[in-house]
């Protein structure tokens, strides 16, 4: 069977998705990056390999996305390396063709993508502030002693959500502590936090954007029912959370790989064996000028296969 592989390596999670010729999802994998993108990709490949019988499977194309897309692209031999914005938009408009707005909230960033007739016409990513991302929710759940999986259900049980100052996450935290001390219940605080984050998201990331339904909400935070409910309350209509909300980037990358292979015919995929190859990265500071660029080197079996990070292009030679 022919299949396309998409790999999305983000700050918090590494996701892989395998789709067939009809873009149906054959397998997916969601693991934590844990600051080690190479290991995460290799682990993910091994898991995917376990789930399917690779002998009967022919990988015809590979796409990578996410903040480690370039590194991953070199590692596995990707046919297309695209930013997560396009990958998310492609996946959402395939699964929900009439989609007009996409909310994507991940571990470290949040974005809004405006789609009209299946084409991205505008987007925004959080720039100066990281308020409202998955990491913050995770941290607060821990502080309140609520497992992150139950966070959403708890929020839904609230009757009078507590008002929390959500402009800045640092102040949101101190406000939450204050509300706790004055006797607000945990579910009301949790629900209030969701509302504050939604307000923050719509005012900062969604600033000046034309938000029209259908709205698709994806990324790790979409698992949180409290956030979905808060969005719906603020917007006044239903927000769709797709079945594979947490691996949409990987699905998008796989679809993009399928698009590319139409043009290039043969994939550059190095095979599932790359999960056994010894990859390492290291960095050094170039002292040739006062810019002191930090140059990153990727080594395969102790041989440098790629370098980047310099402003002048002096070290970049090896990149193909």
């Amino acid at each position: 069977m022919d299949a396309y592989l998409g790999i999305d390596v983000g700050s918090i999670s590494t996701n892989l998705a395998l789709i067939d010729e009809e873009k149906g999802v054959l397998a997916w994998e969601y693991l934590l990056t844990g600051g080690r993108p190479i290991e995460a990709v290799q682990r993910g490949l091994r898991e995917i390999e376990k789930k399917l019988t690779p002998e009967r499977l022919k990988i015809k194309g590979v796409g990578s996305t996410g903040s480690a897309r370039h590194l991953t692209g070199i590692l596995v031999g990707a046919d297309t390396v695209k930013s997560e914005i396009i990958a998310h938009a492609v996946a959402a408009s395939y699964l929900i063709p009439e989609v007009k707005t996409i909310f994507e909230i991940g571990g470290q960033d949040s974005k809004i993508i405006i789609v009209r007739d299946g084409v991205v016409v505008d987007f925004a990513m959080n720039t100066i502030c990281a308020a409202g991302t998955g990491s913050f929710l995770d941290h607060q759940a821990q502080r309140l002693g609520v497992p992150i999986e139950e966070f959403g259900d708890l929020a839904l049980r609230s009757e009078i959500p507590t008002r929390i100052a959500g402009r800045c996450t640092v102040f949101a935290e101190s406000d939450m502590i204050h509300k706790q001390q004055t006797g607000h219940t945990t579910e009301n605080i949790v629900a209030g936090l969701c509302q504050a984050l939604v307000r923050n998201y719509l005012n900062n990331v969604g600033k000046g954007k034309e938000i029209l339904p259908p709205v698709v909400f994806q990324g790790g935070v979409a698992a949180n029912k409290g956030m979905k409910a808060a969005f719906e309350e603020e917007l006044g209509y239903e927000v769709i959370v797709p079945q594979y909300y947490h691996v949409m980037g990987a699905i998008g990358a796989a679809i993009l790989a399928q698009e590319t292979t139409v043009q290039i015919k043969k994939t550059r995929f190095k095979g599932f064996e790359v999960s056994e190859v010894d990859y390492k990265t290291r960095s050094f500071e170039c002292k040739a000028c006062p810019n002191l660029c930090e140059v990153i080197e990727v080594l395969m079996n102790r041989e440098v296969i790629s370098r980047w990070g310099d402003r002048c292009g002096k070290w970049e030679v090896l990149e193909k």
Binding site: K82, S83, E84, I85, V120, V121, F123
Partner: peptide, 14 residues
Amino acid sequence: MTRLEAFVDLLRRR
């Protein structure tokens, strides 16, 4: 770079 890549992709698809 992430934002520029996305912007250029947007332009190309458009």
